Deep mutational scan, measured.
Amino acid sequence: YFCHCCSVEIVPRLPDYICPRCESGFIEEL
């Protein structure tokens, strides 16, 4: 997954599918 807020590849935090770095939901499956 790619976080558009951090502009990095991340492993989303489940079950909410949010970025573990910034806690944004603005992520996209690569």
Rank of each mutant, 00 (worst) to 15 (best):
Y1E: 04
C5V: 07
F26T: 15
E28M: 05
C5I: 13
P15A: 10
V8I: 12
P12K: 06
C3V: 00
C6L: 01
C5S: 11
E23S: 13
E28F: 03
G25R: 07
R13L: 10
I27D: 04
F2I: 12
Y17A: 14
E29K: 15
I18A: 07
F2S: 04
P15S: 05
C22L: 00
P15T: 07
C3I: 00
Y17Q: 14
S24N: 03
R13V: 05
Y17L: 13
R13E: 15
E23G: 15
E29N: 08
P12R: 04
C19W: 00
F2K: 07
V11D: 14
I10S: 06
V11F: 11
R13N: 13
C3W: 00
C6R: 04
E29V: 11
E28Y: 09
C19A: 02
L14F: 02
D16F: 07
H4I: 11
S24G: 13
E23W: 01
C22S: 01
S7A: 10
I10N: 08
E9S: 05
V11A: 07
C19N: 03
P20D: 11
V8Y: 05
R13M: 11
E9V: 06
H4A: 07
D16S: 08
D16W: 05
C19G: 00
C19Q: 01
E9K: 10
Y1N: 14
L14A: 04
P15Y: 03
E28G: 07
V11L: 09
C5A: 12
R21P: 00
F26K: 13
E29Q: 09
Y1G: 05
C5R: 13
I27R: 06
V11R: 09
S7D: 11
P12S: 04
S24V: 12
E29S: 10
C6D: 04
E23T: 12
E29A: 12
G25C: 08
C19D: 00
C22F: 02
I18L: 13
E23P: 00
I27H: 06
C3Q: 02
D16L: 10
L14G: 12
L30M: 08
Y1D: 03
P15M: 10
E28C: 07
S24T: 06
P15K: 03
I27C: 09
I10C: 06
P12F: 02
V8E: 13
G25D: 15
I10F: 10
P15E: 08
P20H: 02
V11W: 03
S7P: 01
C22M: 07
R21M: 04
C6V: 01
I18H: 11
Y17V: 09
H4T: 13
I27L: 11
I10G: 06
P12C: 02
G25W: 07
Y17R: 15
Y17G: 14
E9R: 05
H4C: 05
E28T: 15
E28W: 02
V8N: 03
I10H: 05
L14V: 08
V8F: 08
Y17K: 15
V8S: 09
P20F: 01
H4F: 13
L30Y: 14
P12M: 04
I10M: 12
C6P: 02
G25E: 10
I27S: 15
R21Y: 13
L14N: 09
L14D: 10
R13P: 10
F26G: 15
P15Q: 07
R21T: 03
D16Q: 14
C5K: 09
C5N: 15
P15G: 08
C22W: 01
V8T: 09
D16R: 08
E29T: 12
C5H: 14
L14Q: 14
R21H: 05
V8D: 10
E9Y: 07
S24I: 05
I10K: 11
G25L: 12
I18R: 13
C19L: 00
P15W: 02
Y17S: 08
S7C: 10
F2G: 01
R13S: 11
C22K: 00
S24P: 02
E9H: 13
P20R: 03
S7E: 14
E9L: 03
P20I: 01
S24F: 08
P20K: 02
S24W: 06
F2N: 13
P12E: 10
S7R: 06
E29C: 15
R21F: 01
E23R: 10
H4W: 06
F26N: 15
L30P: 07
I10D: 05
Y17W: 13
I10L: 03
S24R: 11
P15V: 03
E23V: 03
H4K: 14
I27M: 06
D16N: 11
E28I: 07
C6H: 02
E28R: 03
Y1L: 10
V11Y: 10
Y1I: 10
C6A: 04
E29Y: 06
C3K: 02
F2P: 01
Y1T: 02
Y17P: 12
F2V: 04
I18V: 13
S7L: 11
D16K: 07
G25P: 10
P20A: 05
L14R: 07
C19V: 00
I27A: 07
E23C: 10
R21A: 08
E23H: 14
C22V: 00
P12L: 02
I27P: 09
D16A: 09
E28V: 14
F2L: 09
Y17E: 15
D16M: 14
F26V: 14
P15F: 01
E9F: 04
E9M: 05
Y17N: 03
E23K: 14
D16G: 11
C22G: 01
V11E: 15
L14M: 14
P12V: 07
P20L: 03
R21E: 12
P12I: 06
S24D: 12
E9N: 13
L30Q: 13
E9D: 12
V11G: 10
L30R: 15
I18F: 12
H4Q: 12
